[in-house]
Design a protein around this nucleic acid. Structure first.
Lengths: 247, 247
DNA sequence: ACTTGTCTTCCGTTCAGCGGAAGAGGAACC
DNA sequence: GGTTCCTCTTCCGCTGAACGGAAGACAAGT
């Protein structure tokens, strides 16, 4: 089975996650299920190349070169760059935490995030994944997702807070409204004390490529103004995307 | 020499760069110097793991999983997150293109960048590397770099524009001033029509961990105000870094 | 139909990777 | 001082996984 050198290398890299940003050699070996001597050699090669870096403490972390590579990913290069200035505008206009997200399978993948110094309790981090049904951007992405994804998502409406929507019928109704109104909202469905609003970002062929959202303590005041600010920004991103050297 | 499986895998990944974000299998094999059959197998494994993704066109790009990994790098997680809100403040106060950079060997590595809709001609991109002697952030980083890096950098003062500083004595003098004044400036030394100012960002033990800079069309007006805005932001970043869960 | 690309699969040889074992620090405790 | 328990590093002989030439499949262009 999985016993190729390549898979071992990848297992080593996969040993890192957001709870384990730095690991000792023995940890790496343990987590990757490799004998220490083997891990030692592979990690040595990875470090020499720049994929890993050894801290003064002896622990290993993901190196600069892998960071570089990540930046070449299409997630990063196209969408984020096009959106960046608009995210600012939006932040300036709303002073809310701003989110840019895409759908990755049955989850929301946060591509960019822009927060002020103080902010409402927000769970997301750039690169983190959350369920589609409990966040503003998630509802937007789900509303425009293909059939099979929707059924899969409906199959697991996990409860996160007392306000999380777990009834399929209710969610289906909300998604319909998202499609007609052009925006989605949530009220403390993902984390208490946080409401959100989100709109779709449309690419060249008018299909939904991402979602743009904000998180605020209270949505009732000013909802109209916030939504329109979101829509202006989303249209701007879409236009920039279409005219970009998407190469 | 370098003919281990690991090195081959890394050569494949290294075949991607900012001018080659997507590559066909044959391109990959060519650029990595591998026989097609070998590349085929390795690329297959990488794709299965999620390090690469195959586009509908058949070309390969860096996959989401590598993007994720890059986000775990300390560059990303510590420095960028701590700096993000301050970069905004700075943008708001100056309306200039804002740069956050670290030194990587003998080059400036741009860690974050924040630009408005229209901007002065700026060469940098996030993740790009530029020589240390021709940019504002570069001069700051060089001024506080260890001896050996300085001598190495002085050995190759390549000319970029007519205003680029290529005389070692002049540069040495400027660096001394950077250390006493606490900031660096450039005037069209990297790209015509662009001036810049930069200050050091100091970490826990007061050592310089990064540089913060802005790019503007003209520096003479308002220089004092810009520098002081930079310094306020840099201090803020430093304080946040020190108190962060640097894990 | 022929050329020139691409990608994919097969399979026997061989040499690179494997990993047990032993040893070299280093820290903590008695 | 010794003992225990970590960590990391190096060595080396055996073996099976990786290699890559070759042949074939497919697509696009002429």
């Amino acid at each position: 089975m999985g016993a190729t050198v390549t898979s071992r290398v990848l297992d080593l890299l996969g040993a890192f996650d957001s709870d384990h940003r730095s690991l000792t050699l023995s940890d790496l070996a343990r987590r990757a299920g490799l004998p220490l001597a083997t891990a030692h050699r592979l990690v040595g090669e990875l470090t020499r190349w720049g994929a890993l870096t050894r801290l003064p403490t002896g622990e290993y972390v993901i190196g600069r070169r892998l960071w570089d590579l990540g930046l070449l990913s299409p997630v990063q290069s196209g969408l984020r760059q096009a959106a960046s200035p608009f995210l600012h505008d939006l932040y300036g206009a709303t002073l809310a935490t701003v989110h840019l997200a895409v759908r990755d399978g049955c989850e929301v993948l946060y591509v960019d995030r822009l927060a002020g110094h103080v902010s409402v309790p927000v769970v997301s981090k750039i690169g983190s994944r959350l369920p589609l049904h409990a966040t503003g951007v998630g509802k937007v992405l789900l509303a425009y997702a293909p059939e099979d994804i929707r059924t899969e998502a409906f199959a697991r409406l996990t409860r996160v807070t007392p306000y999380t929507i777990t009834q399929p019928a209710l969610l289906a109704d909300q998604l319909k409204r998202v499609r007609t109104a052009g925006f989605a909202t949530t009220g403390e469905e993902m984390s208490l004390g946080a409401c959100s609003a989100a709109v779709p970002v449309r690419g060249e062929a008018d299909q939904v490529v991402a979602a743009l959202g904000i998180v605020v303590p209270d949505l009732r005041r000013e909802q109209a103004r916030l939504i329109s600010a979101l829509q202006v920004a989303a249209r701007g991103i879409g236009r920039t995307l279409a005219s970009a050297q998407w190469k």
